[in-house]
Simulated assay, not measured.
Amino acid sequence: MNKSLFRLQVLPFLAQFILLIGATLVSDFILHQFDLVWVGRYLGIPGTFFILLSLFYSLRKRKVIRSGNPRVLLKMHEIFTWLGALMVLVHAGVHFNAILPWLALGAMVINVISGMIGQYLLNRSKQHLKGRKAKYKMHGLSKTETEKELFWDAVTFDLMAKWRVVHFPISYAFAVLGIGHILSIFLFWGWK
């Protein structure tokens, strides 16, 4: 049975993203059912803190900080980013009427997707391709035959390998738009 890269790696990634959206919808529904919509307004604050805490992995990876186990920090990065994104998405369910929050939200969603691609797909896909190459070699296929068999998997992998091209600029755009949103809240808050 042919186990394609798409079925083994892309579908689980899509399931994880759909779980995030589903958890957002369920959380928002529960808040509305119990007349707790006001809680969603404040979930942006802990969501932002979770996202900021997730940055320790990036700081460690770039040697800005020297302490911390990279594997633990990566797992923390993945979990805190997912939880932070969930809280911010529920926060956005409060139905903003301004463009800046929607731009920040869009940048965050794209950033989460691109981060999940790097985290979830790329490493596993590389292992999948190596495994299939070894299997074909073991079965005596020539290099040309192996390349032919792996063509679409290789194309899929090459496209996924370009994830940083999107992830870093969107991370910065999300940071700028998020900070702009937070500053506008402080500027226009009813400080009575």
Rank of each mutant, 00 (worst) to 15 (best):
A85N: 04
A85G: 13
A85Y: 07
L86M: 01
L86C: 03
M87V: 01
M87T: 02
V88E: 03
V88Q: 01
L89P: 02
A92S: 13
G93R: 01
G93M: 02
V94M: 07
V94R: 00
H95S: 12
F96L: 05
F96P: 00
F96S: 08
A98P: 00
A98E: 05
I99H: 00
I99M: 07
L100R: 00
P101M: 06
P101V: 04
W102M: 12
L103S: 05
L103E: 02
A104K: 02
A104H: 00
L105T: 11
L105W: 08
G106R: 01
G106M: 07
A107L: 08
V109E: 09
V109C: 12
V109G: 04
I110E: 05
I110W: 10
N111D: 06
V112K: 08
V112N: 05
V112S: 06
I113A: 14
I113D: 01
I113R: 01
S114K: 03
S114E: 02
G115Q: 03
G115R: 02
G115Y: 05
G115A: 09
M116S: 14
M116R: 06
M116L: 11
M116V: 05
I117V: 14
G118Q: 03
Q119M: 06
Y120P: 06
L121S: 08
L121P: 01
L121Y: 14
L121V: 14
L122Y: 15
N123G: 13
N123K: 07
R124C: 08
R124F: 15
S125N: 07
K126N: 09
K126R: 09
Q127V: 12
H128F: 15
L129W: 10
K130G: 11
R132K: 13
R132E: 15
R132A: 15
R132W: 13
R132T: 14
K133C: 12
A134E: 04
K135A: 15
K135T: 11
Y136T: 03
Y136R: 00
K137Y: 14
M138C: 04
H139V: 11
G140C: 02
G140N: 00
L141S: 10
S142E: 06
S142P: 10
K143T: 13
K143G: 12
E145A: 15
T146R: 00
T146K: 01
T146D: 07
T146C: 12
T146H: 09
E147W: 13
K148M: 13
E149M: 15
L150R: 01
L150C: 09
L150Y: 10
L150H: 10
L150S: 05
F151C: 09
W152S: 13
W152Y: 15
W152G: 03
D153M: 11
D153N: 10
A154W: 08
V155A: 05
V155I: 13
T156V: 09
D158A: 14
L159P: 02
M160E: 04
M160T: 07
M160N: 07
M160D: 06
A161C: 03
K162L: 08
W163V: 03
R164F: 14
V165S: 04
V166M: 10
V166T: 06
